[in-house]
Design a binder for these strands. Structure first.
Length: 311
DNA sequence: GTCCAGGAGCCAT
DNA sequence: ATGGCTCATGGA
């Protein structure tokens, strides 16, 4: 199966199992807990534990960046720097946003939120499991899937066991009943068939990065259980298509309340709007609107007609 | 009990 | 093209 853009697994037996990335404007908690990835667990000390490319990782926000530790000494960390996108100049991205009040309010409230660069297969499989599920439930399903079918990975002494995300080959050998037992319901046959296509080479998610946005989206939509929204999540969160704009219920709610209050806007009109309004990093703007709506202005069905003031 | 969730597929207009 | 219905599951 394909492994993604940063191709090598982390080489082991290097000097030390920890490192530090110097980076400004990085809100680690917002980034790891904003519904793009589903495997990060918050510790009581504010650290975050997860598995990236089959490697146990603990991350910590520091005064001048992000600290990382692994279970084993590693020779290099660029796979993690790539995943976290620490080299991205966030301010340069934000400078391309249109200066409208709702987006400004979202950026002010969520500054430091980043897009991750995830592994294509894990991202694709996870978002097939995401449809009409809350983020907490998605985490739960993914965790069960990894515990049951993922390879155990090395963890530091005393840590709870951790597992790699199961490969497409592993899932392709299962049946829908075993998958359903993870709690994924009607999504089981979707994941199974997609895993089969990836495992036998009919579909290579990582290869889509060589295509244009429209062609890559069309290819993803050929997969069972993948429509425009899930396709855009994979394009944005794993393949680096920063114009991809997942239009889920939260973002649609944000757009209707903040950009088209008291109007009847059809989904096609929303689609047309986001494709022209938000610019070359529209997907980044989408993530700010999504996180802002979920955590701030729009929560508890709070009426937030126009965050950021008059329009 | 009722509602809803980072939707998609299918069928009737 | 567009709107409605159904799919399975769990938490509020």
């Amino acid at each position: 199966m394909s492994v993604g853009i940063c191709v090598e697994p982390p080489a082991q037996h290097g000097p030390v199992p920890r490192t530090h990335f110097a980076v400004r404007g990085y809100d680690l908690a917002a980034t790891l807990d904003s519904g793009q990835a589903f495997r990060w667990r918050a510790g009581p000390d504010g650290s975050w534990t997860g598995v990236v490319r089959g490697c146990w990782v603990r991350l910590r926000q520091t005064s001048d960046g992000i600290g990382a530790e692994a279970a084993l000494p590693l020779r290099h960390w660029h796979w993690l720097a790539d995943y976290l996108q620490v080299a991205v100049d966030l301010d340069a991205v934000l400078a391309t946003f249109p200066p409208d009040p709702p987006l400004r309010a979202a950026v002010r409230a969520c500054y430091g939120l980043r897009l991750l660069r995830q592994e294509p297969w894990e991202c694709l499989a996870s978002f097939i499991l995401s449809s009409t599920k809350r983020i907490g439930h998605i985490r739960q399903i993914v965790e069960r899937l990894c515990e049951r079918f993922g390879e155990p990975v090395a963890v530091p002494p005393g840590e709870r066991p951790a597992y790699a995300f199961p490969t497409a080959e592993r899932i392709a050998r299962l049946n829908a009943r075993a998958l359903r037992a993870c709690g994924m319901g009607f999504r089981a046959p979707y994941l199974l068939e997609t895993a089969r296509r990836v495992a036998d080479g009919r579909f290579d998610p990582a290869a889509l990065s060589a295509l244009g946005l429209e062609a890559a989206r069309a290819r993803l939509c050929e997969l069972p259980g993948v429509g425009a929204k899930i396709a855009d999540c994979v394009l944005l969160f794993a393949l680096g298509f920063e114009r991809a704009f997942p239009l889920d219920v939260w973002v649609q709610r944000a757009l209707r309340e903040w950009y088209f209050p008291r109007q009847r806007v059809r989904p096609a009109a929303l689609r047309a709007f986001v494709e022209t309004h938000f610019g070359p990093h529209a997907g980044y703007a989408q993530q700010y609107l999504f996180h802002f709506m979920r955590t701030g202005a729009g929560r508890a069905s709070g009426r937030a007609p126009c965050p950021g003031g008059a329009r």
